[in-house]
Design a protein around this nucleic acid. Sequence first.
RNA 1: GGUGAGGUGGCUGAGUGGUUGAAAGCAGCGCUUUGCUAAAGCGCCGUAGCCCAAAAGGCUACCGAGGGUUCGAAUCCCUCCCUCACCGCCA
Length: 431
Amino acid sequence: MLDIRLIREKPDFVRERLATRGSGDEGKIDEVLRVDTERRKTETALQQLNADRKKLSREIGGKKSRGEATDELEQRVRQIAEEIADLNARAAAAEDEQNNLLLQIANLPHESVPTGEDPSANRVVRTWGEKPGLNEPADHVALGARLNLFDLERAAKLSGSGFICFTGAGAKLERALINFMIDLHTREHDYIEISPPFLVRRDCMIGTTQLPKFEADMYGLEDNQLFLAPTAEVPLTNFHREEILAVADLPKKFVAYTPCFRREAGAAGRETRGIIRVHQFDKVELVKITTPEKSYDELESLTADAERVLQMLGLHYRVLELCTGDLGFGSAKTYDIEVWSPGQNAFLEVSSCSNFEGFQARRMHLRFKDRDGKNRFCHTLNGSGLALPRLFAALIENYQQPDGSVRLPEKLQPYFGAERIGMTNVEEMTK
RNA sequence: GGUGAGGUGGCUGAGUGGUUGAAAGCAGCGCUUUGCUAAAGCGCCGUAGCCCAAAAGGCUACCGAGGGUUCGAAUCCCUCCCUCACCGCCA
C-alpha cells in the first residue's frame, strides 16, 4: 500500500500519478485524508485520557499503600474508563477504515513508465532473435495431439476445463524445462532455490496484493485462511515478512518452481485455446528483496535473468515496457517478456518482471536496517523465469520439423535425455 | 487427533495485580584508560503511533494474537495461533 504520509504531504502528486492508470483510484484520496484526520484526532484525545487514567491509578496505588481513602479517585477513573472505551472503539474503527481504503489503492507508476491507457501504449524496448522460417506451422494443440504430449479431454474429465494433463514425453519435457531453468538461475544467476508450501495464509496474500482486491480470482479452501498460491511470488516474497533484515544480506534472491492456481474465469475463445490460459500451471519464479537505492538496477538484471532462458533455448522474443494503464495493481514498473508463437502468429507473455518498490513491503512489514541503524521498508521485485505452458507451447511450435517431430534445443537435450521428440516416443507411450 | 510444558527486548533470562518498557547477563555502539591479537571502567542501546512547522521535547501503545475482570494487568480469566515433548494415526 501507499505510505499514508506521502498521501498526507503530497496529495496532489499522488492523485496525479494515480490518474495515469485510468482506474479511478485518485478519487479515493479525499476519503483517505478525511479518515486519516479523523483517526489522528481521535487517537490524540484517547492518548490524553489514557495518560490521565494512568496518573490517577498510580495515585490510588500510593494512597492505598498509605491506607488512605480512594473512593472518589476510583469513581473518577471509572468515568474516564468509559470515555476511553468509547474513543477506543472509534479510533479502531477509523484505523480499520483507513487500512481498508489504503489496501484498495494501486501503487504509483514510476516516473519512467510511459503514460497510456491500454496495451497499445506499451513500448517495445528490445527484440531478440528472429522468427523461424516455418512453412504453415502447426500450433501447439495440433503438435501436442500428434505427439501425445498432453491430453486436454482427459484433464477436463479429471478437473474440468482449463486444466492440462501432460503425458509421456510431454510430462518429461515439462520436467526437463523446470530443471533447466532452476539450474540456470541457481548456478549462473546466484538465486537461492526454495521449495515453498503451495498453500498460504490470507496475510501473505494481502502482503503480495492478491487480496483483498482480487479474491474472486483466487482458490481458497473451505475452512478459509489458506489459499492456493496463484504464483510462487506469494511464498517467496513473504518469506521474510515482518522481519528486519541487515543491509549486508541484501539483495535476497530466490527462485522456486511451483504450480500456480488461478480462477480467472474468462470466457473460452482464442485466448484460452490449448494450454495458453489454464487454472493450474507450472512456473519457475524469481523474487528479489532489496533496497530502494538498488531496486531499479535489480529490475533490469532480473529481467535479463529471465530473458536468458529464451536466449539459451534459442527462442525469438521481445521485451515490453508496460504503460501506466496496463500496469498491475501493485507494480511501479513492469517489463513483459513475450516469446514468439508461430502457431498463434503472435507474441505470448511468458514473464512479467516488476518492481513493487515498498508497496508490498509496507503491507508485510518487511524492513531492513540501513547503515545509520534506521529501519526502512525494503523494495520487492519478481518475475517469471519462466511460465511453463506457454514456453512449452512456443518451444514445440518453434522447433517442429517437417517430419512431424520436434527437435530440442541443444541446451535442453541433456535435461530431456534425447535430441528430439518423435513418433518413437508416441509408440512407447501408447503401447 | 490426545496429553503435558511453554511463548517476555537482537539473544539468554528475571518478573504472579501498583511508579516495570520491563532486573541481570551477552551481543552492539560511543568515550576513557591501560597499551602488541585483548582487558577494564563509564555511558548509550526495542518497535510503532500521536502532538509539535521542525528540532528539542512530550505523550500513548506494545511482554504470541484477540477479548474479559479491575481504579490499575507482562502478571488473573476466556478464546485462538504458534513452539517443544510424549502418545496415536499416517505418506
